[in-house]
């Protein structure tokens, strides 16, 4: 069972995916200097009406195993501790403890 932070992150991911195209369209209008200022302003107002969890910046890659937000090794999507445990257990192909 994922923890509440992972659930919130999932919510953000779904929101971003659902609203991405319309947000891009509004962004295009709002940032286009060739368009009249009134139109751009209206587009910016529309952008502001989107919810918090429709912005891609609210999405955070968390540990897929434990839900931890810090110390994520992005190649595996795991936090450092889960990475260590899985690597020592041999569950990550091609990863083994260095020794020399």
């Amino acid at each position: 069972m994922p923890n509440i932070r992972v659930l919130r992150d999932l919510k953000a991911r779904r929101g971003v995916a659902a609203n991405e195209i319309s947000r891009r369209a509004y962004l295009y209008v709002a940032r286009n200097q060739a368009l009249p200022a009134q139109v751009r302003y209206q587009a910016q107002l529309q952008l502001n009406t989107f919810g918090r969890y429709t912005r891609p910046t609210t999405v955070k890659n968390r540990c897929t195993e434990s839900g931890r937000g810090r110390g994520i090794i992005s190649e595996f999507g795991l936090c450092r501790f889960q990475f260590r445990q899985k690597a020592l257990a041999g569950e990550l192909p091609g990863v083994h403890k260095a020794s020399w």
Partner: peptide, 24 residues
């Protein structure tokens, strides 16, 4: 002049964002 073209040119991030967590 800023045309805003970069917002249309960028690839969509949503589909790959949805795929981050493995399905349970």
């Amino acid at each position: 002049q800023r045309t805003g073209a970069k917002y249309l040119r960028r690839r969509l991030q949503g589909p790959s964002m949805l795929k981050y967590y493995p399905l349970e």
